[in-house]
C-alpha cells in the first residue's frame, strides 16, 4: 500500500492541497486557473466566490469527480486520481443537491452507507438523526430540503472521515435549518479533530462556523487567510475617504447596502484605529476582494460553482 501511495504524495502537511490546478472544459471554458491552496488540518474552511468562481470544480477535483487539466490535487498527500480508494477513504462529501435514493427510507440510507463503506458507524448516525427528529422510517422523498441535507451530512459524518468536503449544502435551506446544519457540522468536526471545507454564499453562516476563508474569483485564488485575520486586517470607508494610516492599501470598491460606494482597505493590524475608516465585516472583506479581482483584469469565465 505504501508503494501505491508514495508516488501520489504532494506534500503531506495539509488536509487538502491544490498545486497549480487548472481546469478547462470543452469550448475553452476555464473553471480553474492555476490554483495553489493548502487547507490546514483541523480547520473549518469557507470557500467563497461568485457563481463560476470554480468552487465546485475544485471540490470535485478533491473527491475525484473532476480531473484537473493541469496541476495536481491531494487529500492528505494522496492524489485522488492515482489512488482514488485511499483518497476517498479520508473524505466525507456532501453534494450541492441532496442526492438521496427515491423510495428508500432514512434507515435504508444508513444501511446502504454501511454496505458501501467499511468502517461506517451507523449508531451515531442514527442517534444524530434522532436528535434532529428525522424519522428513520420515513421515505426520503417526503423529507424537507433541510432534512435531506441533514441526512446527507449525517451519512458523511458517519464515515468518520478525516476531511469533509461540503459543496454548498446550505443553498436551499431556511435560516433555522442552516443554523442546525452548521451546529451539527462544527460539533462533529471538532469532536473528531477533522477538517472541513464548506462552500457557501451565506456569509453569516461562514462567520459562525468557519475559522478560515478562501475567496475564489474567475478560477483564481484571491484570498486565503484565517477569518479573524481577514476581519482585523481590513477597514472600510466611503470611496472618497482617505485613511491617515501609513501603509494602508486600497483593495477594491464595491456598492454598500444603501447604494453608496465603499472602499475596502488593507491596513496593518497594529494600525487599526484610523478615524477615517471603520472595521470591516466579513461580507465587506469578501465583496472588496471580489471587486478588486474584477477591476484590474478581466476574470476568465468558469463553470457555475
Amino acid at each position: 500500500m505504501e508503494a501505491l501511495i508514495q508516488p501520489s504524495v504532494v506534500d503531506g502537511k495539509a488536509a487538502l492541497q491544490a498545486r497549480a490546478v487548472a481546469k478547462r472544459y470543452r469550448g475553452g471554458v476555464r473553471a480553474l486557473d492555476g490554483i495553489d491552496l493548502d487547507i490546514p488540518v483541523g480547520s473549518i474552511c469557507a470557500l467563497v466566490g461568485p457563481n463560476g468562481a470554480g468552487k465546485s470544480t475544485l471540490m470535485k477535483a478533491w473527491v475525484g469527480f473532476e480531473r484537473p487539466s493541469s496541476g495536481s490535487v491531494a487529500v492528505f498527500g494522496i492524489n485522488p486520481w492515482r489512488n482514488r480508494p485511499a483518497a476517498l477513504d479520508r473524505i466525507g462529501y456532501v453534494s450541492q443537491k441532496p442526492s438521496l435514493y427515491r423510495g428508500l427510507t432514512v434507515a435504508d440510507h444508513v444501511a446502504l452507507a454501511g454496505s458501501l463503506r467499511s468502517g461506517f458507524d451507523p449508531g451515531p448516525t442514527r442517534r444524530r438523526l434522532d436528535e434532529l427528529a428525522i424519522p428513520l422510517g420515513q421515505d426520503t422523498r417526503t423529507l424537507s430540503g433541510g432534512q435531506q441535507a441533514q441526512v446527507m451530512l449525517a451519512l458523511a459524518l458517519g464515515t468518520h472521515a478525516q476531511v469533509f468536503v461540503l459543496d454548498e449544502p446550505l443553498a436551499s435551506l431556511d435560516p433555522l435549518a442552516r443554523r442546525e446544519f452548521l451546529h451539527v457540522l462544527v460539533d462533529a468536526v471538532r469532536a473528531d479533530g477533522a477538517t472541513a471545507v464548506l462552500s457557501s454564499h451565506v456569509i453569516t453562516d461562514i462567520e459562525q462556523a468557519c475559522d478560515r476563508l478562501v475567496v475564489l474569483g474567475g478560477g483564481r485564488k484571491i484570498l486565503d487567510v484565517p477569518i479573524a485575520e481577514a476581519i482585523s486586517s481590513h477597514r472600510v470607508g466611503t470611496a472618497e475617504a482617505l485613511p491617515e494610516t501609513a501603509g494602508a492599501q486600497p483593495v477594491g470598491t464595491f456598492p454598500g447596502p444603501f447604494g453608496e460606494r465603499l472602499t475596502l482597505w488593507l491596513v496593518p493590524p497594529e494600525r487599526a484605529d484610523d478615524p477615517a475608516l471603520r472595521g470591516a465585516t466579513l461580507e465587506e472583506v469578501i465583496l472588496g476582494q471580489l471587486a478588486a479581482s474584477r477591476s484590474p483584469r478581466t476574470p476568465t469565465q468558469g463553470q457555475p460553482s
Binding site: 473524505i91 462529501y93 438521496l100 458501501l116 461506517f120 458523511a156
Partner: peptide, 18 residues
C-alpha cells in the same frame, strides 16, 4: 440522472466494487 451516483461513489471507496 438523479445524482445518487455522487453519494454512492464517495461512500464507496471503489467504484469497481459498487
Amino acid at each position: 440522472e438523479t445524482g445518487t451516483a455522487s453519494l454512492a461513489w464517495t461512500l464507496s471507496r471503489s467504484r469497481r466494487r459498487w
